[in-house]
Amino acid sequence: MGLTPEWALSQVLERSWLLMDQSRALVTAAREELPPDRLWELHQVPAARVMKLIRRGQDEGAFRTDLPMWWLIAVIHQVFHAAPADFTLGHRTDPSRMPKLMTESVLAMLRAPRPSR
C-alpha cells in the first residue's frame, strides 16, 4: 500500500490498538472515573492526528467527503472502543486479529463511495 492515506491511518490505528490493549485496565478505569469532557480533552491529540489523515485521504479522493468530519471521528472512536468490549463480553476473537478487524472496518466506512451508474 505504500504511503497512502489508507496505509498511514491503518498504522495509526494498529499502533493505537496495541497501546490500548497493553493498558486495558487503565483505559477502563479512566472511562469509569473521568468525566466525559476530560476524556474528550485526552482524545484531542490523537483525534487531530486522525483528522489530518482523513483530510489527506479526502484531498486525494480516497476517503469520503459526504459525511461531516465530526461523524467520521465519532464512528472511528466507537469502533476503536468497541474492540475491548469484545473481550469483556466473552467473544472468542483472537486478540491478534483485532487490529486488522478494526482497521478494515474503519477503512470500509471511510472509503469514498463509488459513483452510481
Score class of each variant (00 low, 15 high):
Leu3Cys: 07
Thr4Met: 00
Thr4Lys: 00
Pro5Asn: 08
Glu6Phe: 08
Trp7Pro: 00
Trp7Cys: 13
Ala8Ile: 04
Ala8Ser: 11
Val12Thr: 08
Leu13Ala: 04
Leu13Cys: 02
Glu14Cys: 07
Glu14Lys: 07
Arg15Thr: 02
Ser16Met: 11
Ser16Trp: 06
Ser16Asn: 10
Trp17Ser: 01
Leu18Asp: 08
Leu18Ala: 11
Gln22Cys: 04
Arg24Val: 15
Ala25His: 13
Ala29Ile: 01
Ala29Cys: 04
Ala30Cys: 09
Arg31Phe: 14
Glu32Arg: 15
Glu32Trp: 06
Glu33Val: 09
Leu34Asn: 04
Pro35Ala: 04
Pro36Glu: 03
Asp37Trp: 12
Asp37Gly: 03
Trp40Gly: 10
Leu42Trp: 06
His43Val: 05
Val45Asp: 14
Pro46Glu: 06
Pro46Phe: 05
Pro46Asp: 07
Pro46Lys: 02
Ala47Gln: 08
Val50Thr: 09
Met51Tyr: 03
Lys52Cys: 05
Leu53Val: 02
Leu53Ser: 03
Leu53Cys: 02
Leu53Arg: 05
Arg55Pro: 01
Arg55Val: 06
Arg55Gly: 05
Arg55Cys: 09
Arg56Phe: 08
Gly57Ala: 04
Gln58Val: 04
Gln58His: 01
Asp59Arg: 12
Asp59Val: 02
Glu60Ile: 01
Phe63Gln: 01
Arg64Gln: 09
Arg64Phe: 03
Thr65Ile: 10
Asp66Tyr: 07
Asp66Cys: 06
Pro68His: 01
Pro68Met: 00
Met69Cys: 03
Trp70Ser: 10
Trp71Lys: 15
Trp71Ser: 12
Ile73Lys: 03
Ile76Leu: 14
Val79Phe: 13
Val79Glu: 05
His81Ser: 11
His81Ile: 06
Asp86Thr: 13
Thr88Pro: 08
Thr88Cys: 09
Leu89Glu: 14
Gly90Asp: 08
His91Thr: 15
Thr93His: 11
Asp94Gly: 00
Arg97Pro: 07
Arg97Ile: 04
Arg97Phe: 10
Met98Ile: 15
Met98Gln: 12
Pro99His: 01
Pro99Tyr: 01
Lys100Thr: 13
Leu101Thr: 02
Met102Pro: 01
Glu104Asp: 15
Ser105Ile: 08
Ser105Glu: 08
Ser105Pro: 05
Ala108Asp: 14
Ala108Met: 06
Met109Lys: 03
Met109Ile: 10
Leu110Tyr: 08
Leu110Cys: 07
Leu110Lys: 05
Ala112Gln: 15
Arg114Tyr: 05
Pro115Trp: 09
Ser116Arg: 15
Arg117Ile: 07
